[in-house]
Amino acid sequence: MTLVLEASLFVFLLVIAVAITRTKDLFAAAMLSGIFSLASAGLFTLLDAVDVAFTEAAVGAGISTIVILGTLSLTDPVEIRTRRPLLPLGVVLLTGMALVWGTLDMPAFGDASAPIHLHVAPRYLSESGAAIGIPNVVTSILASYRGYDTLGELFVVTTAGIGVMLLLGRGESRP
């Protein structure tokens, strides 16, 4: 049952992706990219990555769509196509093939002997309950075991905010 749902979501993602490339209406493309994110979030939920799914739904389907729509309100909502994009198509195909080739070396889906399940993950799963006292292991890892990484991510978000403030202003210089 799960496999059928996953397969249909993948097909759905493919259809949306093709629709995004085909449409000339940028408003429709923006909404479709939001739907794409929502379908990805559903797929992540099926793959038991609920925290990732939550982030994808909130950021990908929510804020990103709003920011794209905000940008769209400042520009022309119709895409202008001058020539057939053969070079970009070639680059995308090559990159895609390289990525698929790269995944051939990866362990099979759900493989219990994959390196990622043998290194620190068993320790986190067995110890974090007693050492940190929080049932959600993902929160324990992100906020405590990998506290440095999360602080670094926060610096990235802050830098992005400062960059937007410097480039566009604070949004109050309106008549």
Binding site: T71, M165, G169, R170
Partner: peptide, 10 residues
Amino acid sequence: TIYSSFGGRE
């Protein structure tokens, strides 16, 4: 901030 920076532009 990002939203109001974009929204505040003419």
